[in-house]
Design a protein around this nucleic acid. Sequence first.
DNA 1: CTAGGATCTAGAGTCGGCTCTAGGTCAAGC
DNA 2: GCTTGACCTAGAGCCGACTCTAGATCCTAG
Lengths: 158, 158
Amino acid sequence: MAEVTTNLSIGQVAERTGLSVHALRFYEHEGLFVNPVRRGPGGRRVYSQDDVDWLTVCIILRASGMPLPALRRYADLVRQGAGNEEERLTLMREHQAHVTAQIGRLAECLDLIRFKVGVYEDLLNPDSAGDHQCHAPIPSAAAQPTEIRIGDARVSGS
Amino acid sequence: MAEVTTNLSIGQVAERTGLSVHALRFYEHEGLFVNPVRRGPGGRRVYSQDDVDWLTVCIILRASGMPLPALRRYADLVRQGAGNEEERLTLMREHQAHVTAQIGRLAECLDLIRFKVGVYEDLLNPDSAGDHQCHAPIPSAAAQPTEIRIGDARVSGS
DNA sequence: CTAGGATCTAGAGTCGGCTCTAGGTCAAGC
DNA sequence: GCTTGACCTAGAGCCGACTCTAGATCCTAG
């Protein structure tokens, strides 16, 4: 069995994860890795494919708005090994709820945005009768202090 | 007809929009209002229902991730009055695209999260055969790096 | 031998979007 | 008259998540 232990430099990992080398060092410093990053000659970081796989998960969790402390908590649990699956499940379920809620909120916002787009389209092209339905809180814009949370998930690229 | 011009204090507006008084002053300072906020005796801010309606729109746009500069741009256009509807439409369409993309990204993330939740559920309740399908690009990434042993793999510089 | 490039550490800086503080004005109630 | 509370301005501070800098080390190529 040829131990194909991939040995990647920080630059290579940056390249294939999309994270910067700075971010990789930062993540390590923040304790987000499951296993300590190995070091090669000269104290240089050496990453395995498992590290890259873990980072891929991290990136997805981050992209969906999980804050670093929660990610660190999750990494801690995985690092501790079997036995804490319930806690991991709880953590994941909570995050799932967050993401689901966020998607719902965005969908609501999208409703207003679509409505606005429709209004301007009609205005610029009055021929086509506009029949936009908007099952959202736009007519009653003055209604309730809808609890919309500003500033939640920030996702790559932007 | 009785002039029903609602005159609201900053505190009242804060209360019914959910924004803080600090945020309201900040938004004004940032030029996010369509019309200049009136002032009452003692230089106190006086808001109309229109202001509140506009803020409601702002809140929704912010909640969907529109950055302040874009919001300011939109306010500028509205302030300038009729004639720039195309630009407003463009702005709104761009934002619509952003939000749609963001929802898509979050949905993808949710796929991994659901998968993870499923894995842990099965692990804790092995009776029910779990058949989770994950129609996302994550099968390999979701592999559990539980207890990864890092041998004394030496990194030969080669 | 020397230059270039990737890496290292520790720590400072950046950015967006508020949030808070300090010091002051003003109107109402006791 | 005095206190309280809402409001004012200008500007400082905060938070999260990086990003960048400085100065050093090390490897490889020419």
